[in-house]
C-alpha cells in the first residue's frame, strides 16, 4: 500500500489535468451586443447597490484561450499603438493599479465598447462583442489580475516586460504587505 500511494496520487493528478478548460474557438461575431450597465464609480448616493455581473464575464475572465486571443487582438486592433504593451503612451498605462473608469471586466468591456471622453475611442462598430470581452480579460491580465495558470506565458515579439503570467498584481507588485 505504501508503495502505491505515490502512484495513486500521480494518477489523480493526471486525471485532474484532463479537466481542460472549455474553449469556444468560434465566438459569436455579432457586433455590439451586450448593453448591460457597468458602473464606473463606487459613489452611489443612497448606498451602493449590488452590481449585476454579466454572465459573459465569468466565461472570459480566467480562460487561457480567451486571454491569449485577447493578447493577439490587443495588437491587431491597435490597442498597443496607444497603450504600448501595458505601459501606456498616447493612452494611459494599463499595467498599473490606477483605473480611471473601473477595474472590473464589465467596466473595461464598457470602456472599449463605448469609449471614454478623454480620448478612448468607441470600438462598438469595429470589434465583435466577444472579442471585446477577450480584450477586456487580457487588459486585466496586464496588471496581474488574471490567474497565472491562464494568463499568456510568452511574447512572440521583442520582450517589453515579463510575460503576463509572471506579471505581479499591480496593487502589491508582488510584495507582501
Amino acid at each position: 500500500m505504501n508503495r502505491c500511494l505515490p502512484c495513486l496520487l500521480s494518477a489523480m493528478l493526471v486525471l485532474a489535468a484532463c479537466q481542460r478548460e472549455e474553449r469556444e474557438t468560434r465566438p459569436q461575431s455579432a457586433l455590439g451586443s451586450g448593453d448591460q450597465p457597468a458602473a464606473v464609480t463606487a459613489l452611489e448616493p443612497g448606498g451602493q447597490r449590488p452590481t449585476s455581473s454579466d454572465n459573459k464575464a465569468g466565461v472570459f475572465e480566467a480562460n487561457a484561450f480567451h486571454l491569449s486571443e485577447g493578447k493577439r487582438l490587443f495588437n491587431w486592433f491597435n490597442c498597443s499603438g496607444c497603450h504600448a504593451n501595458g505601459g501606456g503612451g498616447m493612452g494611459p498605462a494599463l499595467m498599473d493599479q490606477k483605473w480611471l473608469y473601473g477595474s472590473s471586466i464589465e467596466s473595461i468591456h464598457a470602456t472599449i465598447r463605448d469609449g471614454r471622453p478623454n480620448g478612448m475611442p468607441s470600438f462598438r462598430d469595429t470589434i465583435p462583442d466577444d472579442q471585446i470581452w477577450e480584450l477586456a480579460a487580457f487588459v486585466r491580465a496586464l496588471s496581474g489580475n488574471a490567474p497565472s495558470s491562464a494568463a499568456p506565458g510568452r511574447d512572440d515579439d521583442m520582450m517589453p516586460h515579463p510575460s503576463e503570467n509572471r506579471l505581479p498584481d499591480a496593487a502589491t507588485l508582488g510584495k507582501s504587505p
Binding site: 505601459g87 501606456g88 520582450m159 516586460h161
Partner: peptide, 12 residues
C-alpha cells in the same frame, strides 16, 4: 502621462 516604466515599449 503617468506611464509605467516596467514596459520597455511604452511611449513608443
Amino acid at each position: 502621462g503617468d506611464l509605467d516604466p516596467r514596459d520597455a515599449t511604452a511611449a513608443l
